[in-house]
Design a protein around this nucleic acid. Structure first.
Lengths: 216, 216
DNA sequence: CCCATAACCTATCATCGATAGGAAAGGTTG
DNA sequence: CAACCTTTCCTATCGATGATAGGTTATGGG
């Protein structure tokens, strides 16, 4: 465990007004996301977060039951940020295939641009039994995000397609996209081919098969 | 951090004979893999491993420079186990497509049957700069495993295919497989469709597109 | 002005990974 | 046999971490 040299500005901000605890909560989450994005989840301590915010470390526990819950909420937020990007692409003009690919591309870009946020959202290990709540929230945010993608798949496959079939295809595609992003993130030292070329091929493999309408 | 109740049989085995330090090393790795498979990487401490082996905790550091190196070696071993399974499938009789799918299916099965070993091999975060050696070993084992898969892809695509094209397709498929396995492992609470059906569809999507020979 | 309470603190805990330094077993060499 | 060196393994202890206990202080309604 390498001790990272860290000079954190300890502002010691004035305490929040009576009903404004939620505001402090937001500050904590903001700083936590920033620190995690800088150093990775496992290299950020509760003390670092607290110092960055300008409060004492035990004060964190007034807002979150434990570290895992804090991180989980960062993950939920990351999912919501991704969902927002995807929703925008899903509403853009173009063919169903264009929109599906635009959303998929946004997904990939999000993961590559914010690898640590992506990791927290998609690859965070589940906590103990009593952390169930936080993990459920991450899962719910993930399902909501997936649903946007599924909508694009539904449009792409056409109105005649069975609901179960849509879900099946959407999940397979979702997994395929996640695989590329997570591997590129987790194994940057792997002898990858040209990244853009790989992404293009990967996206092509999504729509190459189960396309029911204009096949090219 | 929940303190897990743990009654470990502390044998206090006799010390190893003069040249048999490597034997103890194997024991450590065996117990580490077992404990990790039982509780997950982050829920296993060096003290638990040492106690399980029957030695003191600092003795671990006579065999591994730090905890990360130990876990990394467990990851390398997991990769080698996966490689062995894949090699067997790759050598089995059948068409190139059959063999490619058999290897892919083995990959998926391995991940689902030994999720924590899979996690350590594929999803372990890289350590600090001085852990480079261990991480490199994991990466090398991973590349070796990938190479088996790539061989199947080469056979599948046919001898006329460009080497770079083979690598591109192989990496895309590899990522696709990893995505399914890692998501199924990491998000068991997700509302997945029938698992076997999903796997079949996913495998089908691998060979559905870039097939140059017998399409169907 | 009072005082309930939300917001926050210091002190401290057990556990973690890791280091320092020494004990002891066992082969080797005189 | 005795001296010695190397390998194996130990106890004691460190700083850092997540978490808890219990007290303090400011805020704002009455």
């Amino acid at each position: 465990m390498l001790a990272v040299i860290m000079l954190v500005t300890s502002h010691h901000l004035p305490r929040k007004a009576k009903g404004q605890g939620g505001e402090r909560r937001e500050e904590i989450l903001d700083h936590a996301l920033r620190l995690i994005s800088e150093s990775g989840v496992h290299n950020v301590s509760t003390r670092q977060i607290a110092t960055a915010v300008g409060i004492s470390q035990p004060t964190l526990y007034a807002y979150f039951p434990n570290r895992h819950a804090l991180v989980a909420e960062v993950g939920s937020r990351a999912f919501r940020a991704l969902a927002a990007r995807m929703r925008k692409d899903a509403a853009a003009p173009g063919s169903a295939q264009d929109r599906l690919l635009a959303v998929a591309r946004s997904y990939i870009r999000f993961g590559l641009e914010q690898p640590d946020a992506y990791r927290v959202a998609f690859m965070l290990e589940a906590g103990s039994a009593e952390d169930k709540g936080g993990d459920d929230a991450v899962l719910a945010a993930g399902i909501e995000t997936f649903t946007i993608h599924r909508g694009c798949v539904a449009d792409y496959l056409g109105p005649a397609t069975d609901e179960a079939e849509i879900t099946l295809v959407a999940q397979s595609m979702w997994a395929s996209l996640h695989g590329l992003v997570s591997l590129l993130i987790a194994r940057p030292g792997f002898p990858w081919v040209d990244r853009e070329q790989l992404i293009v091929h990967h996206l092509g493999s999504l729509v190459g098969r189960t396309s029911p309408q204009s096949t090219q």
